[in-house]
Structures are given as C-alpha cells and as structure tokens.
Amino acid sequence: LAALHAEGPLAGLPVTRSDARVLIFNEWEERKKSEPWLRLDMSDKAIFRRYPHLR
C-alpha cells in the first residue's frame, strides 16, 4: 500500500519516495501484461521525473 496526500494541491500523489516506488511498481506490473518489453525503473531520477514534488 502507498500513502497518498489526502487533500490540497498534492491530493492523490505519493507522500514519500517509497510510496512512489509502490505506485510505479503496481503500474508496471499491470502494463507488462500488454507491453512485456517494458523495463521497471524505480530510480530516484525516474521518481523525480514523475513526481517532482518529492525532490
């Protein structure tokens, strides 16, 4: 499970980098069924690119 911001401008976004990794992994797991070539990237760089508020 990932903790998400409940309200405000960040509502629905992950609270920590660990939470972001959970979301990225879950999405990758779903997408790899139809796109088996996808690589999993959970590096800090990938997290910041996707969720800049975690910098």
Rank of each mutant, 00 (worst) to 15 (best):
residue 23 L to S: 02
residue 37 W to I: 04
residue 28 W to E: 02
residue 54 L to Y: 00
residue 24 I to F: 06
residue 49 R to W: 11
residue 41 D to T: 04
residue 20 A to Q: 00
residue 48 F to I: 10
residue 41 D to F: 06
residue 10 L to I: 05
residue 32 K to D: 02
residue 37 W to A: 08
residue 48 F to D: 12
residue 42 M to Y: 08
residue 20 A to H: 00
residue 26 N to C: 12
residue 52 P to W: 02
residue 36 P to L: 05
residue 34 S to D: 14
residue 53 H to K: 00
residue 22 V to I: 15
residue 13 L to H: 04
residue 13 L to R: 04
residue 11 A to I: 11
residue 28 W to L: 02
residue 1 L to D: 10
residue 53 H to D: 01
residue 21 R to I: 08
residue 6 A to Y: 10
residue 15 V to K: 12
residue 27 E to H: 06
residue 12 G to R: 06
residue 21 R to V: 07
residue 25 F to V: 06
residue 51 Y to F: 15
residue 37 W to L: 10
residue 15 V to M: 13
residue 47 I to W: 01
residue 41 D to R: 03
residue 12 G to V: 03
residue 44 D to G: 08
residue 29 E to P: 02
residue 6 A to T: 14
residue 43 S to Q: 02
residue 7 E to G: 11
residue 51 Y to N: 01
residue 10 L to R: 04
residue 40 L to E: 02
residue 13 L to I: 03
residue 17 R to Y: 13
residue 20 A to I: 01
residue 4 L to G: 04
residue 46 A to I: 08
residue 50 R to G: 02
residue 16 T to E: 06
residue 27 E to V: 05
residue 44 D to F: 08
residue 3 A to H: 15
residue 31 R to M: 09
residue 34 S to P: 02
residue 44 D to M: 11
residue 42 M to K: 03
residue 4 L to E: 06
residue 47 I to S: 00
residue 50 R to F: 06
residue 30 E to H: 11
residue 38 L to V: 11
residue 43 S to I: 02
residue 29 E to D: 09
residue 33 K to Q: 12
residue 32 K to R: 14
residue 19 D to E: 06
residue 42 M to H: 04
residue 42 M to S: 05
residue 20 A to Y: 01
residue 8 G to F: 05
residue 51 Y to Q: 00
residue 30 E to G: 09
residue 23 L to T: 04
residue 5 H to K: 11
residue 43 S to R: 10
residue 46 A to K: 06
residue 20 A to V: 01
residue 19 D to W: 04
residue 21 R to K: 12
residue 29 E to Q: 15
residue 31 R to H: 07
residue 54 L to Q: 00
residue 29 E to R: 15
residue 28 W to A: 01
residue 46 A to V: 10
residue 44 D to E: 10
residue 53 H to V: 01
residue 3 A to N: 15
residue 55 R to P: 05
residue 9 P to T: 08
residue 9 P to C: 09
residue 30 E to K: 13
residue 49 R to M: 14
residue 16 T to S: 12
residue 19 D to V: 03
residue 17 R to I: 15
residue 12 G to N: 07
residue 17 R to F: 14
residue 10 L to G: 03
residue 52 P to S: 03
residue 33 K to V: 12
residue 45 K to F: 12
residue 38 L to M: 07
residue 51 Y to V: 00
residue 30 E to P: 02
residue 41 D to L: 04
residue 39 R to Q: 14
residue 55 R to K: 13
residue 47 I to Y: 01
residue 37 W to N: 13
residue 19 D to I: 03
residue 45 K to G: 11
residue 55 R to L: 13
residue 32 K to A: 10
residue 9 P to M: 08
residue 4 L to F: 08
residue 42 M to C: 12
residue 38 L to T: 11
residue 50 R to K: 13
residue 13 L to Q: 09
residue 23 L to N: 02
residue 16 T to L: 04
residue 1 L to G: 11
residue 36 P to W: 07
residue 10 L to T: 04
residue 52 P to Y: 02
residue 21 R to N: 03
residue 14 P to L: 01
residue 6 A to K: 15
residue 14 P to S: 01
residue 18 S to P: 05
residue 25 F to I: 12
residue 33 K to D: 09
residue 36 P to F: 06
residue 4 L to A: 05
residue 22 V to G: 03
residue 12 G to L: 05
residue 45 K to E: 15
residue 10 L to E: 04
residue 1 L to V: 15
residue 25 F to P: 00
residue 41 D to N: 08
residue 49 R to G: 11
residue 30 E to R: 14
residue 39 R to H: 12
residue 4 L to K: 07
residue 8 G to L: 03
residue 29 E to K: 15
residue 8 G to Q: 04
residue 5 H to T: 05
residue 21 R to W: 07
residue 24 I to K: 00
residue 22 V to L: 15
residue 53 H to W: 03
residue 15 V to T: 05
residue 35 E to F: 09
residue 17 R to K: 15
residue 4 L to I: 11
residue 25 F to S: 04
residue 6 A to R: 13
residue 2 A to Q: 07
residue 43 S to A: 03
residue 53 H to C: 01
residue 46 A to S: 09
residue 11 A to K: 15
residue 47 I to A: 01
residue 27 E to L: 07
residue 6 A to H: 12
residue 17 R to T: 14
residue 47 I to D: 00
residue 36 P to K: 07
residue 54 L to I: 03
residue 45 K to C: 14
residue 35 E to W: 08
residue 49 R to K: 14
residue 43 S to D: 04
residue 11 A to G: 07
residue 55 R to E: 09
residue 40 L to F: 05
residue 30 E to L: 13
residue 41 D to S: 05
residue 43 S to V: 02
residue 54 L to C: 02
residue 17 R to W: 12
residue 27 E to Q: 07
residue 37 W to C: 13
residue 45 K to M: 13
residue 51 Y to C: 00
residue 28 W to S: 01
residue 44 D to W: 10
residue 4 L to R: 07
residue 31 R to I: 04
residue 22 V to C: 11
residue 49 R to C: 11
residue 1 L to T: 13
residue 40 L to Y: 05
residue 44 D to L: 14
residue 19 D to R: 02
residue 7 E to T: 13
residue 30 E to N: 11
residue 11 A to L: 10
residue 42 M to A: 06
residue 49 R to Y: 12
residue 26 N to E: 10
residue 12 G to W: 04
residue 44 D to C: 10
residue 17 R to P: 12
residue 31 R to Q: 09
residue 33 K to M: 10
residue 45 K to R: 13
residue 17 R to N: 08
residue 5 H to W: 13
residue 38 L to H: 09
residue 37 W to E: 11
residue 20 A to F: 06
residue 40 L to S: 02
residue 40 L to W: 03
residue 22 V to N: 08
residue 39 R to T: 14
residue 1 L to Y: 14
residue 53 H to A: 01
residue 55 R to W: 11
